[in-house]
């Protein structure tokens, strides 16, 4: 397996969506190739940072606008 094959399979590898033999081949390559290991690790970190990031609080005026619009509509239907 070559470095370009690792990149090709990277998404499925990270999503654990590969059969065990292909996975084993990738891990064998990663054990020997520092560059690929860094690409895999930093791509994994990229996903985790976005996945774990907390959304910022709504700007106050945005929240007021949203809740006013909802109140108007919900009140209408009561």
């Amino acid at each position: 397996m070559k470095c370009k094959d690792i990149v090709k399979e990277l998404a499925d590898y990270l999503d654990e969506d590969l059969d065990s033999s292909l996975r084993a081949s990738i891990e064998e390559h990663l054990g020997k190739c520092k560059d690929c290991r860094l690409v895999v690790d930093t791509t994994k970190q990229t996903i985790q940072i976005y996945c774990n990031s907390e959304p910022a609080p709504l700007p106050a005026e945005t929240r007021v606008k949203l809740h006013d619009a909802l109140a108007k509509r919900l009140h209408h239907q009561v």
């Binding site: 907390e54 709504l58 007021v64």
Partner: peptide, 17 residues
């Protein structure tokens, strides 16, 4: 007047919860 919905900031819920 239209009723005001609760304007206080809610407790954040992480996406995986």
């Amino acid at each position: 007047n239209s009723p005001k919905l609760n304007p206080t900031q809610p407790t954040f819920l992480p996406s995986h919860v």
